[in-house]
Nucleic acid binder design. Structure first.
Lengths: 141, 141
DNA sequence: TTTGTCTAGTTGCTTTTTGCAACCAGTCAA
DNA sequence: TTGACTGGTTGCAAAAAGCAACTAGACAAA
């Protein structure tokens, strides 16, 4: 890991997800229920497989997610968010909120974001709890 | 402007600030009171001048900031956040909050973030109001 | 009016990262 | 045993970033 440019909190965060792909991968796992390499590879933005490999490794190293073997299919890896990863939810929500106000976002996505934002803390908390449950399960393997 | 990879709100936002430098520039203007090219160039992370030129142009094109001539020194350009830029404050705050919890952040910066986060909405609102005032001033030139 | 300094950049070059397509070995189900 | 699916790897071309040197215009002092 190359040394930090600075210890500013914004810079520290950007060293984890300051690129075009990392937050999209986290989004896939956090909101879209994707857990496997090929599922993430298949999302709309068409990430290349070598980049995905690289980012998943980095996210694992940073402790944002953990990689475990699928119980049923031994060749399948399951990627699960850690608490550090789950804690990015407020950041993701606010980014999405900003986008729906200021950028071109599809009607379907606006509704989805509104559910989470306006639908309030309750829905977000439920989602966070579900993700934490999942983490607990893969942790005791 | 090359076409979007997708209309997902997260992706739309990343097309604006999904890189190592853009959010640091916004931070400099938003929280550190920097307004001139050379001021931003001088921050801790040592951005290269050609990259800074490029990002300032892009941010202007995206409508995140406006560029005006300094009243006193005609060769100086003043970079001011637009409302679209100011609206990124909640995102910045949550990123900083996440970093202070999960990443290596200097004691000084932690205090600074805590003021804004724990110090609550009031301080943030005041800062936002001040930035909006500034925008109003440069707008009527 | 010259000299030096400060301004916002630009230019040319090297290194790093990304993007793309083809490929591969192991797993599994029929 | 075949064929499709799994998580990747490899090699090459293109784009972006990094670095250092440079420039033209504004200004202030001598």
């Amino acid at each position: 890991m190359k040394k930090s440019k600075s210890h500013c909190p914004i810079n520290q965060a950007l060293e984890v997800f300051g690129d075009k792909w990392t937050l999209l991968i986290i989004r896939d796992i956090m909101f879209d229920g994707k857990r496997y390499f090929r599922e993430i590879l298949g999302s709309d933005e068409k990430i290349a497989s070598n980049i995905l490999t690289d980012r998943l490794h980095k996210l694992e190293t940073f402790g944002i997610l953990v990689k475990t073997k699928d119980a049923d299919h031994k060749q399948k890896n399951v990627y699960t968010l850690t608490e550090k990863g789950i804690d990015l939810m407020p950041v993701m929500i606010h980014i999405a909120e900003w986008s729906t106000k200021h950028r071109e976002v599809s009607e379907k996505d606006i509704i989805h974001v509104n559910e989470l934002v306006m639908g309030g803390r309750k829905l977000q908390d439920e989602l966070q709890e579900a993700l934490k449950e999942e983490l607990k399960k893969v942790s005791k393997q």
